[in-house]
Structure formats: C-alpha cells, structure tokens
C-alpha cells in the first residue's frame, strides 16, 4: 500500500466528537458499517459540505482529542470510505483502535500541527515515516509514525481483513 498521501488540507479544531460531529449518532445505534452509506455523512455535524468536496488522498488535520466520546467506529469508517489521511494532535484510545480497524492511515500524535497548516493548502504526508510536507508553504514537519504492526493492519484494509489473514496464518480455520 502507498502510505504517502498528497492532497488538500482540511483543518479542524479540538474535541471533534465521534457522535454528532464526525457522524450522526443514528448510524452507530443501527450498527451501520456499509461504507457507501456512511461516506456522505462524514463530518456532517461540523461541515455538511465536507463529504462531497473532499477528494481521495486529501488530508484531515485536527487538534486535540479528535473523535472523543463513546468510541463508535462509524465516523472512522466514513473517513476510510472517502480515502482520506488523518493527522491529529491527539486521539483517545478507543478512537485510535477504531481508526486502525477502519483502515485509516493516520499520524496519532502531532502536537502543534494545526498551527502549521491551513485548509486548502497542499500537503504531502508519508504515514510510514511521519514526514509532513506543506507544499504550499514549502515547510516540512516530522512526527512519530504509527507502529509498524498497526500500519500493517491499515495496509491490508483494517480489522476484518487483518483478522482473516491472522486466522489463515495460524491455521485457525477449521
């Protein structure tokens, strides 16, 4: 999998909530996991036009405690469906697991990053190394990448394909 994303920056603030901001709560209550259903509602509570305007390869950059709240996976599945990368100052434990399980490439710990980018700027992020280039400004930042084990789960497409691969490798299919 290509772990370098190049696209427009979509910047958001601190404390974006899982339910309401990132995805309407009703989809979590219905345990909806179909990507095509969730995609158009991604970030609806913050910017109703976002899902229609974001392009595959674009990068969401958010502040502290991105996807805070009851860790429902639906919002992260929406981001995966739109094929976006994710760069955040911080993300709570439950939502980090959900991002990995949804197969969203992310940099989970980028303190101060929101001061270095603006919506509409051209970014290039290498999720394997943690290098973020702001092509509009000609600047470069470096953050800790996600662990290799977790990048491998993302690379294969998230929780279900990763578990299928592991079950096959262990000979657990009987």
């Amino acid at each position: 999998m290509n772990f370098t994303y190049r696209g427009r920056c979509w910047k958001f603030g601190n404390d974006i909530g899982v339910d309401g901001d990132l995805m309407p709560l009703e989809f979590a209550m219905q345990r909806e996991t179909r990507l095509e259903v969730l995609a158009p509602h991604t970030m609806k509570g913050v910017d109703p036009a976002f899902a229609a305007r974001a392009q595959p390869g674009d990068i969401m950059v958010a502040g502290r405690r991105f996807a805070q709240g009851n860790p429902h996976i639906q919002g992260l599945l929406g981001i995966a469906a739109l094929k976006l990368g994710l760069v955040v100052e911080s993300i709570p434990r439950g939502s980090l697991r959900n991002a990995v399980n949804a197969g969203v490439p992310l940099l989970p710990s980028c303190p101060g990053v929101t001061a270095q980018v603006e919506t509409g700027e051209e970014l290039e992020v290498d999720f394997a190394t943690g290098r973020l280039r702001n092509l509009t400004r000609g600047t470069q930042l470096s953050f800790a990448p996600l662990d290799k084990e977790l990048r491998d789960i993302i690379a294969i497409g998230g929780w279900r394909p990763a578990l299928e691969r592991r079950i096959a490798a262990m000979g657990r299919r009987t």
Partner: peptide, 11 residues
C-alpha cells in the same frame, strides 16, 4: 475491548 474480543477468541 469491544469487537476485537473476536480476535482473542479466535487467535
């Protein structure tokens, strides 16, 4: 854990 308890039960 939530859904990943399945991983633990399987693997």
């Amino acid at each position: 854990l939530v859904v990943e308890i399945t991983d633990v039960l399987a693997c």
